[in-house]
Write a protein that binds this DNA or RNA. Structure first.
Lengths: 179, 179
DNA sequence: CCTAAATACTTCACCGATGAATTATTTTTC
DNA sequence: GAAAAATAATTCATCGGTGAAGTATTTAGG
């Protein structure tokens, strides 16, 4: 999804604002400000994910593969089980199998059965995997930092706090829906 | 991607906070607060998109199909070309063809060649398509509203303003990268 | 101790998304 | 006016993601 590179997020948002003004007139009770926030969130998040995907593509790596590798890189001893990873990387166990296959093939991780529970697999990052991460990350930092550079430190804190509040709210609403 | 229904966003974030504390020690110059904001954004946005996907699934409709239909619903005369839609719905023209096929099959839109330019197709929402939208939306409003209910009106305005600022920033950084 | 239930991971079939190539049409260039 | 270039949409092949079903192992219950 590298569509944002051709279209400005701001222009998409402008078009959405127009459309929403019209819909507001014809759909009773629509929480228009909440819909707008939803769209702003998903559009900005999507655009940033696209940027990441573009950075990964020359290395022949997909986003979810990268996230899984990053999780291993940042775990206490560079290892984790597929189900643990699936949780934090928000992937199905099916796709985690595909990801593990891919990373093993690249030599970035190893895979072995756990000793204490032979149902479990232990994925462990290799030195090559660590080197790849260490080489891949630094060039991405300047643009990521630039993206948030218009915010003051105080605004960043505010945004972070609000997103954490939103995450809690999402969990609360989701739990309510499961009853 | 309905993974969030099984895992709490807040727990995923907690795990990420741990991992990031470790990575911060071993990757020099990493803009840790910006990475954290990126993850918070993509996780919350992703969780909300999952909620939408779950709502659409019983109706046999995918998110992008829904968004395209909503765009037509909210356009001045219920019509648009595939390339226009592709832009605002952030989809490739390839996928817009798939989406159009799907919506035509459901009877929600019609498709015809433009008179003034036979390269162009005009997609137009049908009365059945309008009825579907009018029936589908209202049940989603309460939970969407509940998700943002913890924010005061002032906070919502702040969040909206910040996300618009972020969108502009993304466009600026993207334009810089294209040079 | 044995059986049923639960768990971890994988396989299979399918869905949604993409880029490259293609076709038809329009616009631009000379 | 003719040819080249550009544009709009579609087709084809491939990738990344899922749920259901299946296999192997462990845990729970009687």
């Amino acid at each position: 999804m590298n569509y944002f590179s051709m279209n400005k997020v701001t222009e998409i948002i402008a078009g959405l604002d127009e459309g929403m003004a019209r819909v507001e007139q014809i759909v009773p009770g629509m929480p228009i400000d909440d819909v707008r926030l939803y769209k702003l969130l998903t559009l900005t998040a999507g655009a940033m994910q696209d940027e990441l995907a573009r950075n990964l593509k020359p290395h022949g790596m997909a986003e979810s593969d990268f996230h899984a590798l990053m999780m291993l890189f940042s775990s206490p001893n560079g290892s984790a089980t597929p189900s643990d990873l699936a949780c934090v990387a928000t992937q199905s166990s099916t796709n985690m199998t595909r990801i593990a296959n891919s990373l093993v093939k690249k030599g970035f991780i190893t895979r072995a059965h756990a000793v204490d529970d032979r149902r479990r697999i232990v994925m462990r990052i290799t030195p090559a995997g660590k080197r790849f991460v260490n080489k891949l990350l630094p060039p991405m930092f300047p643009r990521l930092a630039a993206t948030f550079a218009t915010f003051s430190a105080r605004e960043k804190t505010t945004l972070q706090r609000m997103l954490r509040t939103l995450a809690q709210s999402i969990d609360d609403v989701t739990a309510r829906g499961d009853e």
